[in-house]
Write a protein that binds this DNA or RNA. Sequence first.
DNA 1: CGGTACTTTGAATTATCTCAAGCGGAGTGG
DNA 2: CCACTCCGCTTGAGATAATTCAAAGTACCG
Lengths: 252, 252
Amino acid sequence: MTSSAPVPKLKNVEVECAGCPIRHRAVCARCDAEDLQRLEEIKYYRTYEAGQAIAWAGDEMGFVGSVVRGVATISQTMADGRKQMVGLLLPSDFIGRPGRSSTPYDVTAVSEVTLCCFRRKPFEQLLVSTPAVAERLLDMALDELDAAREWMLILGRKTAREKIASLLTIVARREATVGLPAIKGPIVIDLPLTREAMADYLGLTLETVSRQISALKNEGVIELDGKRRIAVPDIRLLMAETGDDMDGGLIA
Amino acid sequence: MTSSAPVPKLKNVEVECAGCPIRHRAVCARCDAEDLQRLEEIKYYRTYEAGQAIAWAGDEMGFVGSVVRGVATISQTMADGRKQMVGLLLPSDFIGRPGRSSTPYDVTAVSEVTLCCFRRKPFEQLLVSTPAVAERLLDMALDELDAAREWMLILGRKTAREKIASLLTIVARREATVGLPAIKGPIVIDLPLTREAMADYLGLTLETVSRQISALKNEGVIELDGKRRIAVPDIRLLMAETGDDMDGGLIA
DNA sequence: CGGTACTTTGAATTATCTCAAGCGGAGTGG
DNA sequence: CCACTCCGCTTGAGATAATTCAAAGTACCG
């Protein structure tokens, strides 16, 4: 079950908030030194392997926290097995809901995931005493609400082709934000999602996803490098396939 | 432009928070007398006729506020006219986002709507000084996020029939919360949505909506009273059609 | 009454799904 | 080192749910 990597699981590099890669985007983004001190006291790290469950729907979750590294998904499954992803958790995203002890969703690590965790109760107290965290959490929740609504449009009204293009654009946009904003030149999307996972995102079958990706490849809109790595030579070509009025996007 | 109703538009009944119908569910739910005083000072009422736009995507919105009475929708429209509703605003729901001056969505009054408005700037200040409001707003945002995710499952994975049943169940559940919790006995849904509006919610065409409603009617799951009023003789029959694992729901 | 707006129903079309077979790389064990 | 198997991916062909296009039907309102 354990990975064969010779390095130890817990990299103790990440005990200092100051050097944290998500310091300025996570729930702690607006904290000053004093706030950070309080967070440091109740935080701890946790690592999950690729494919491992972080939580099952209905589970008690004793903690909330931030994704420091890796990718995780939030999904819902119907009684007969139909599955819909309802959130994509990238570094700096928040997991869990203050004020609720159990999660209604499955949360799964897609790649190896490192979490910065806070036990729920102390975190809820901290929320009251540390407005910087509460404010940031509200902002993040509203951002996620916007993202969910964008997904609703994709799920409800877009064609299979537009759905694929939208997913790739969203991930590309997000990757661009993290790294250098290399708008010109090819963008490489290192998507750790299987075709099936993409299908569960987009409300499609894995066969349809595969067909549409092949089509985009044949038309030169994207290039495949192996199965998972996708290069986008010209992001505007891809964006033209999303069905959106392409104006805002990267610049906004 | 004015309605022909003989009663004046501004019913001055609603100047007192104490007697407000949404006093205990809206953003002000957790306010004490003192907090309420501060809200009273910056609030004002506004009424929209059925069909009237409350805001267009891209508009500057100088206020935020709560729906006091009536139903409104939040929707997105693509360049070619495809439309997706991304939110249903019932009494007590909050409109607008603190910290953002323009809305990315169309907001439309479906029935006559009364809003309790706060100018955005003063409200944002109040948010800092009145934790009771900020906390409630966070909770409401998280509730909306949950609702949006439930919609994502509906949009992505459910059949037309299940979508209709889900919409009716959600509205029925919400109506039940407001009025008496009459779980036994027929529930009457006074849905002010046209078939087209329902279609825009569910990611369907209006014809498909019409067909599925007819089918449910013919099978005795629902009864139509006129075009808009729908009676549900046995909510469990309807819930059985949603595709959900019917356990939680009303009791939870 | 006549008109507008909404709804219902039918028939043909199509995008996506389902079922099914085959491909390719990665890891395993002989 | 070479099968061998597993898992994810691709591709094809037929089935199907939902859409599109079209025509009536119904209620409401001046």
